[in-house]
Computed example of a mutant assay.
Amino acid sequence: MTTPPRALITEAAAALLRTLQDRHGALMFHQSGGCCDGSSPMCYPQGEFLVGDRDVLLSVLDVGDGVPVWISGSQFEAWKHTQLVIDVVPGRGGGFSLEAPEGMRFLSRGRAYTEDENQQLDGEPPVTGARYEAGDRPRDTGTHVVAEAQDACPIPAARIQR
């Protein structure tokens, strides 16, 4: 069984990301932990956001030349049982995120891993900023692009009351 990716991106979000890459060059995401912009994926030019030794690389999205998705180590501990799905919706992006003037904003969605997936992931420690600096990279887990968020995060059917 293949270990599931820790982060995915919808095709709509990937399309916006490609537009931003054409304009700004190499990009990266850092999953914000709150404060000014809530808990949202913040998009920066590669290297503009300084990754710390304890930050965790969730995935490198296969969009353009690859877009790393980082999260703080402490936030990863709270989210490690959840697959992050980066989507896009109309609205104003986070004040520091590159999509802010586009009339769209990146949005984090999540899917809880199954017990089997959690066991697989336990066997593969994530790449930290320190390990990345030393040359470690995450294993290739296939494409990270899904058609729509519900392909990764199914919406439960509404219960019909009679």
Score class of each variant (00 low, 15 high):
110 G>W: 12
150 Q>L: 11
40 S>Y: 10
74 S>Y: 10
29 F>T: 02
43 C>Q: 03
100 A>N: 12
18 R>V: 03
80 K>E: 06
13 A>E: 00
19 T>I: 10
9 I>F: 01
19 T>W: 08
4 P>K: 03
30 H>R: 10
2 T>R: 13
111 R>P: 00
150 Q>R: 12
140 D>P: 03
155 I>P: 07
83 Q>C: 08
103 G>K: 09
160 I>Q: 15
129 G>P: 08
71 I>P: 04
110 G>D: 01
82 T>Y: 15
73 G>K: 01
72 S>N: 07
14 A>Q: 02
90 P>F: 05
76 F>Y: 15
66 G>H: 01
3 T>G: 09
81 H>L: 14
98 L>Y: 08
10 T>A: 07
2 T>D: 10
159 R>I: 15
122 D>S: 12
77 E>M: 14
109 R>C: 10
10 T>C: 02
27 L>R: 06
133 E>A: 11
76 F>N: 07
28 M>H: 02
140 D>C: 04
59 S>M: 01
128 T>A: 03
18 R>L: 11
139 R>F: 02
9 I>L: 03
84 L>C: 08
71 I>E: 06
66 G>N: 00
82 T>H: 13
122 D>V: 07
13 A>N: 02
85 V>Q: 05
51 V>M: 06
72 S>L: 08
29 F>H: 04
109 R>N: 11
130 A>M: 02
21 Q>S: 13
72 S>Q: 01
161 Q>K: 12
134 A>Q: 12
111 R>G: 07
107 L>M: 10
123 G>F: 03
139 R>S: 11
25 G>R: 04
64 G>V: 02
130 A>V: 07
98 L>P: 06
81 H>M: 12
24 H>F: 11
159 R>Q: 14
84 L>F: 04
7 A>S: 07
158 A>N: 11
28 M>P: 04
10 T>Q: 03
36 C>F: 13
127 V>I: 11
17 L>N: 01
101 P>F: 10
56 V>I: 14
48 E>H: 12
90 P>L: 09
62 D>H: 05
103 G>C: 05
139 R>W: 03
90 P>I: 01
108 S>N: 13
28 M>I: 00
159 R>S: 12
135 G>E: 06
123 G>D: 07
93 G>D: 00
135 G>K: 07
109 R>Y: 13
158 A>D: 13
141 T>F: 07
43 C>I: 06
94 G>Q: 09
34 G>W: 00
106 F>I: 02
34 G>E: 00
123 G>E: 09
150 Q>N: 12
132 Y>S: 10
13 A>F: 01
105 R>L: 13
51 V>Y: 01
84 L>W: 07
139 R>L: 14
95 G>C: 15
25 G>S: 08
41 P>V: 05
